[in-house]
Amino acid sequence: MNGNSMDDTNSDKPVGKAVKPGHEAFMVADNVNVWYGDNHAIQDVSIEIQKNQVLALIGPSGCGKSTFLRCLNRMNDSIEIAKVTGLITLDGQDINSRDLDPVALRARVGMVFQKANPFPKSIYDNVAYGPRIHGLAANRAELDEIVYTSLERAGLLQEVKDRLNNPGTGLSGGQQQRLCIARTIAVNPEVILMDEPCSALDPIATARVEDLIDELSENYAIVIVTHSMQQAARMSQRTAYFHMGKLIEIDDTDKVFTNPQHKLTEDYITGRFG
């Protein structure tokens, strides 16, 4: 890293277009800062998340992309030393305001985690859990309907329809991750956050999950954190590059990967560090 790029890192404005024209900004983060105790983990990040699109967050380890993701459904609330400032709005509503309950927010902004974490319950109960706690189904038939469509949309129904009562933890890694996705979409959220959903999967399972994410982007706004640049390039419409807690560049994915505007972005995607 040379002196120049350090200076660039400290410049305030990220390069690129924050918004893709013709798409509605659905979730807006404005000047978000996160501190973990004294550690300034996220510095002045402003991003717009749009409907029916996949936004990829890339960057070297520890750059704050996962931290930022967790701000979007207030998962940082449970970390006592974490402090979040700045405005994040969902459909115009401040998600950190006192009026908005984090429980209600998380029903609208679902999350898929890095490591597949099915509950130690049956496959059916895993998918039905969200609808049950939120009272989304009036009766058993409706619940069945939600579970089946969710598994279908997660591309898992054919594989598990004969053993819905088997434990979800007995599935293979890739199936478990698709089960977690089915569990998330069963609540019918508006935004889905994904934190490196494929990092623990083999290439075939990864391909299946990527296809699934591609299909899901027709209906949901998706934000995905990934370490794989190929994955970001394949799946996302827009890409944001984070470096040391700062948003360096955000633009159409094609543009970021073919013609990065910032030296740091170029270094990262060409594999010079990271």
Binding site: S78, F113, N117, I133, V187
Partner: peptide, 27 residues
């Protein structure tokens, strides 16, 4: 109790009480 299970429940919008009684306590 693995934190990942608790996170999964919180991520789905379970309240603290639901997380405790549905997941933490049985495990």
């Amino acid at each position: 109790v693995p934190p990942s299970i608790k996170e999964a429940a919180f991520g789905l919008g379970a309240s603290r009480m639901q997380v405790v009684f549905h997941h933490v306590l049985p495990l």
